[in-house]
Design a protein around this nucleic acid. Structure first.
Lengths: 343, 343
DNA sequence: TTGTAGGCGTTATCAT
DNA sequence: ATGATAACGCCTACAA
C-alpha cells in the first residue's frame, strides 16, 4: 500500500501538503492539489485511517452496545439501529457493534475501545457496560434511564414511559376494560420499572387494584421460556388459571404475536373476547397482522437518530445547546385489536 | 489516559516488558507481571488500540456491509447479523457496520477502511462494494454469488438456491398446484437470478409455462412501492387482473405477511383458496402467524457464522483447509399455509 | 527474562 | 501556500 511519503516524493511536495490535500484542514493551491490527487490515484493511495487516528485521537466510529448476548432483536431494535447508522453516516461516523461477551473478559487483557463515543441500548440497573464507559471517560448516550449508583449525570433519549403507560391504561379503561394484564419487559430493564410503576399507579387511581396475575416480566434472554413468554403467560393465566382478563398489553411485537397465537388456541377472539395492545412494534408488522394491532408508536428510528445527535454534540461534532435528556414523542395508533366493552 | 511509558516508569521496567505483559507474545516472570498489572490498574492503564493497530497492521474488526441504505432489514438479515457478531466475538473480532451512503462519497477523500476483512451481504451484479474490497486488497466473504466481471475467484457462503427453488416448486406441484406465483427478491440481487432461473426451469420441466403475471421482482429499496410489494402484486394479479393463482411463493417474511393481508382483503382463505410458501423468514414469526407459514429454513445465523469462519481462515486466524464456497443446508418446514389441491 | 531504540503513517507546529 | 520535523503510543528486532 502506498504511503504518504511515496505520494509526496512523486508529486514533488512535502508530506504535509499531501496531508492537507486529503484532510482539507488547510488550503492548497489548485495546481498542487491536482497533482497530488493525480499521483495518489496513480499509486492507489488512500490515507491510513489508523495512523490518522493515532494523532488526531479520533476513530470516527461510535459503539452501539446491544443487549447482552442479544440473540433476538425485536423489530424495535432493528429500527433503532437503522436510525443510528443513518444518522451517524451523516457525520462521517461508522458504527461498531459492541456486545458484551457472555463470559467476563479477563480485565487486564483488553485494549481501549477504538470508538469516540457510544450509544447504549436497553440499559439495566447497575449496567456494567455503562460503568465501563463511565470509568473509561467515553462519552455515551443511553436509550432510557441510567440507574447506576455512581452515576449522577448522563445524557439520554427516551420515550415518556410513565405517560405512555398512563395513556394506554386510560385508553383501555375508557373503553370499559377493568381486567387488564400487562406483559412487561424484563425486570432488569430500566424501562420496565417506569412502566410497571405507572401501570400500578394508573390502575389504582381508577380503583382497580393490581393483582399478581395481572403483571408479568419477560424472562431473561438465556431462559428457555424467553421465546415463549407471551404464549405461556396467556395460556397459564387465561387458560389454566381461568382468570378474567379482557385486555392484554404486550411489551413488544414478538410478545404480541405469541400472545395472539395463545388466544387463538384458547378459542378467544381478538378483539371480541380479549383486546390486545402493543407497546412497541414494527409498523409494517402491526398493520399486516390479523387483526391489525393497535399500538403505541415509539418511533424507534427517531430515537436512534436523536441519540446520535446528542452524542455528536458531546463529541463536539455538532454545535449548539442540546438538552441532557431528549423525550421522543409517542402516540397511540388505533387499529383493530382493541374493542369497547359494554358494562 | 496513562501510557505505556508511565506504567514502565512506575513499575521500574522497560516499556517492552509492559508490552509483553499485555500482548502475551513473550513470557514474563510472575513477579514482574504482577507488578506491571498492579501499576496498570492503579494508573487505569489499558493499551491503546490504535497505536497497536498501527504497528501490528490489524484492526481486529471486520466490516459487515449491509444492503444499500438499508432501511428495512428483514428478519433474515437480523439473524444473519447475530450469527456474524457472535462468531466474530469468539476470535476477539469486533464488527463494524458498513453502509454505502446513498450519494457517492467523493472518492479521493476517503481513508482506508479500518477493518481486516469484510462480510458482504446481499451482493448485487457488479457490486461496487465488492469492487472496492477487491481493489483495496481487503479479504472478504460474500453471502451469495459474486457477479462482478473483473472478479473470478471469491469466497462465499450460500444456500443452494437452484435446489431450493426446485424443491419448493416440486413440493407445490406434488400437491397439485399448477398456477404458482413467485414474488422474487430484487432483480439486482444475485440470489434472485438463480431463483428465477430455477423457478422457470422447474415449472417448464413439469409442463407449466411461466407467464408474466407469475414472476415478480421486489422494487428497489428507495421505491415507494417497496414496503407494499407483496400486498400490491397480490391485489393486482389476483384481484384486478383476476388471474388464477393457487399458490404464492414469497421471498421473505415481510412480503409474506403483506401478501397474507392482501389475500384476506380479497376474501381468499389461506390455505383453502391460496397456498403461501415463504423462502426465508424468522422462525418465531412463521410460527406465530395465522395460519403458521410453511417455509424454507435457510439457517441465517448459521450462514453468518460460517461466513465469519471463512473470513477468519483468510485472515490466518483460523487454521486449516476451508472450501472456497460453503453451502448451508436448508430444508422445508411444513406448517399450515399450504394445502393439497384435488384435481 | 528484560532493556534499547527504531519505526509504523499520519498530523500538527513552527518556520519560511 | 508550502516545507521540515517532532510527536502520537505501541511493538519488535536485537542486544544483553
Amino acid at each position: 500500500m502506498a504511503k504518504i511519503d511515496d505520494v509526496a516524493r512523486l508529486a514533488k511536495v512535502s508530506k504535509g501538503t499531501v496531508s492537507n490535500v486529503f484532510s482539507q484542514k488547510r488550503p492548497t493551491s489548485d495546481e498542487v492539489r491536482e497533482r497530488v490527487l493525480r499521483v495518489s490515484r496513480q499509486l492507489n493511495y488512500v490515507p491510513n485511517h489508523t495512523a490518522r487516528s493515532l494523532v488526531t485521537k479520533k476513530t470516527m466510529a461510535i459503539g452501539l452496545t446491544i443487549p447482552h448476548g442479544s440473540f433476538f432483536f425485536s423489530l424495535f431494535h432493528t429500527q433503532f439501529i437503522n436510525g443510528v447508522i443513518l444518522e451517524a453516516s451523516y457525520y462521517g461516523y461508522r458504527v461498531l457493534l459492541d456486545i458484551i461477551p457472555e463470559q467476563q473478559v479477563q480485565t487486564p487483557f483488553l485494549t481501549s475501545y477504538p470508538i469516540d463515543g457510544a450509544v447504549v441500548m436497553s440499559p439495566t440497573t447497575n449496567d456494567e457496560r455503562i460503568a465501563l464507559m463511565h470509568a473509561g471517560q467515553i462519552p455515551f448516550v443511553t436509550v432510557g434511564k441510567v440507574m447506576n449508583e455512581e452515576i449522577a449525570h448522563f445524557t439520554s433519549v427516551d420515550n415518556d414511559n410513565p405517560q405512555i403507560m398512563r395513556s394506554i391504561c386510560e385508553y383501555l379503561i375508557d373503553k370499559g376494560h377493568t381486567a387488564i394484564m400487562f406483559l412487561n419487559a424484563n425486570a432488569l430493564m430500566t424501562v420496565s420499572l417506569d412502566r410497571k410503576a405507572s401501570f400500578i399507579q394508573t390502575l389504582e387511581k381508577h380503583g382497580l387494584p393490581v393483582e399478581a396475575h395481572m403483571l408479568h416480566h419477560k424472562p431473561a434472554l438465556n431462559s428457555s421460556e424467553y421465546l415463549d413468554y407471551g404464549y405461556a403467560e396467556t395460556i397459564r393465566v387465561l387458560g389454566t388459571e381461568r382468570r378474567k382478563v379482557t385486555a392484554i398489553i404486550a411489551d413488544d411485537d414478538r410478545t404480541a404475536f405469541s400472545t395472539l397465537k395463545a388466544l387463538k388456541d384458547l378459542n378467544l377472539n381478538v378483539p371480541g373476547d380479549v383486546s390486545l395492545f402493543v407497546i412497541c412494534g414494527d409498523l409494517s408488522m402491526m398493520v399486516q397482522s390479523d387483526p391489525s394491532l393497535t399500538s403505541m408508536d415509539l418511533q424507534p428510528s427517531e430515537l436512534g437518530a436523536q441519540s446520535v445527535r446528542l452524542l455528536m454534540n458531546q463529541l463536539g461534532v455538532l454545535q449548539g445547546e442540546f438538552p441532557e435528556h431528549v423525550i421522543v414523542e409517542s402516540k397511540i395508533i388505533e387499529r383493530n385489536s382493541v374493542s369497547t366493552i359494554s358494562s
